[in-house]
């Protein structure tokens, strides 16, 4: 007989390979990443939004005009991860950071690879490090990480 007080538990996996159509603006951004570049889009009053969206997030007005930004930029804020989660973009200690790319008016979320936490501070200049062209498919992961400029 089964244990009359046992509470049954069971693993449950929810898994699906979502495939998302990007539309032209996000498509242009991902295409640029695949080509080893970063682009933004012009929003209301000409401010440059990165990553680009079809709309200016503050006014909802339609955006237009893809512009090149980066590959260098400045750390606006950061969070140092000593023990990366299994699903983190890097498996060695790194920083999540909001990075304002040169030519952009908004900051983008990505990761910064650095040897130690003390070299990652707000205001630090970083530059994009892409994966090799053959590995790039048109996703955020084409941009492997940012690294400290000149290091």
């Amino acid at each position: 007989m089964a244990d009359p007080t046992e509470i049954y538990t069971s693993p449950h996996v929810l898994e699906y390979p979502y495939a998302r159509s990007t539309g032209p603006i996000i498509g242009a951004f991902l295409t640029a990443l695949r080509d080893g570049k970063i682009v933004g889009v012009k929003g209301s009053k000409g401010r440059v939004i990165v990553p680009p969206t079809e709309y200016d997030p503050d006014t909802a007005e339609e955006t237009s005009g893809i512009v090149d930004v980066g590959p260098g930029g400045v750390i606006e804020t950061w969070a140092w991860v000593d023990t990366p989660r299994f699903d983190a973009p890097l498996d060695t200690p790194f920083a999540w950071a909001l990075i304002r790319l040169d030519g952009a008016d908004t900051a983008m979320l990505h990761v910064v690879a650095a040897p130690t936490s003390d070299v990652v501070v707000t205001g630090t200049r970083v530059t994009a490090e892409f994966r090799p062209a053959a590995e790039r498919v048109g996703s955020m992961h084409d941009l492997r990480c940012f690294v400290l400029e000149g290091k």
Binding site: R20, S21, G23, I25, E54, Y55, T59, A60
Partner: peptide, 26 residues
């Protein structure tokens, strides 16, 4: 609708409704 993102899809309907109403997002 492979020509749009999710935001693009919802904006298509929202913008049309606003135009019909003679109003703007603001």
């Amino acid at each position: 609708r492979e020509d749009v993102s999710i935001a693009g899809l919802v904006r298509e309907a929202a913008v049309a409704a606003l135009e019909d109403a003679g109003l703007d997002f603001s």
